[in-house]
């Protein structure tokens, strides 16, 4: 009962709460979305904590995501012994890096007075769960070797079964308790996202790469309209040109096709005399056959 809740109920509850909760928080308490950096208050320990932690956990999660999103590709990759060993070693290294970083961050939260001034109970809980989670992951890698390989037949299809709404908990029900705890904790973390500082995951500023350096905001929409009228005219012209180009291209394709058909009709390849004679002979033979057939039918009716 508990196991089926942990393997089926919890995942769906976690995803639902994470998505709805984050949307609710974004809509009602947008101000609370922040990375909540404490570098201003303390920066030495942060450098040695935040850096390794984020690099380590990013690599580990990237490995997880790759294995779960493309299990078949991953399976064929790790079927090569060298690749498998490489992946396992890299994963363990990244996990150790993450644990080191996280330990420094936890220590910093607990000992530095200034940082403590901005530390909440949820912060500490998240730090604790993350630490346990990464340690469990590392233990799994050490005690139950070659997870990169066996997960392609267990965890990956299980996650796919969850994603396609046909949950098959049996796929992972026989995994060791250590691994099952690791999976359950992952769902708990997901569940906590909207209620903790983990919402900063959704703040990754991807659009920064594409945006123009300066941002102008017009407080007054009417004035903005006038200011952009000129730009809009240029834009409109550009759209018109683009549409005309598209129409012209389409039209010319159509015209070319039609022209080809017409040209074929008038100037296309002609049959040689021999070929047309052969054709006439075939036609004649068919006609004769027809005539014979009709003759027979006529005789039968008489």
């Amino acid at each position: 009962m508990i196991q089926s809740f942990l393997l089926v109920g919890l995942p769906y509850a976690a995803v639902l709460v994470c998505v709805l909760g984050s949307i609710w928080r974004f809509r009602s308490r947008r101000f609370s979305y922040s990375a909540l950096s404490s570098q201003f208050l303390e920066d030495r320990q942060l450098l040695w904590g935040s850096g390794p932690w984020h690099v380590g956990i990013f690599l580990v999660l990237a490995g997880h995501a790759l294995a779960f999103l493309m299990p078949s590709v991953w399976a064929s990759l790790v079927s090569n012994r060298a690749v498998l060993i490489g992946v396992e070693v890299a994963g363990m290294g990244a996990a150790i890096l993450a644990i080191l970083g996280l330990s420094i961050l936890t220590l910093r939260r607990l000992t530095n007075g200034r940082v403590q001034a901005v530390t909440t109970n949820v912060d500490l809980a998240i730090l604790g769960i993350l630490l346990v989670q990464v340690v469990l992951g590392l233990l799994t890698a050490v005690l139950h070797r070659w997870g990169a390989s066996w997960s392609t037949g267990t965890a990956a299809p299980y996650l796919w079964s969850l994603a396609t709404l046909r949950p098959e908990p049996a796929l992972v029900a026989d995994l060791p308790p250590l691994v099952q705890t690791h999976m359950a904790l992952a769902w708990v973390l997901l569940l906590l996202v909207p209620f903790s500082r983990l919402v900063h995951l959704f703040s990754l500023p991807v659009l920064y790469v594409f945006r123009a350096p300066l941002v102008f905001v017009w407080a007054n929409p009417r004035r903005f309209e006038r200011a952009t009228a000129f730009v809009q005219r240029i834009e409109a012209r550009r759209y018109f040109l683009r549409a005309s180009a598209g129409l012209a291209a389409g039209g010319s394709l159509l015209a070319a096709g039609t022209f080809e058909q017409i040209a074929q009709f008038f100037f296309g390849p002609r049959m040689s005399e021999k070929e047309s004679a052969g054709l006439m002979e075939k036609k004649l033979a068919r006609l004769e056959q027809n005539a014979a057939q009709k003759k027979l039918e006529l005789e039968r009716t008489r």
Partner: peptide, 13 residues
């Protein structure tokens, strides 16, 4: 120009 979130802006008016 530096703001990754695009939160900083110049008022047009």
């Amino acid at each position: 120009a530096s703001c990754p979130s695009g939160a900083l802006y110049k008022r047009g008016e």
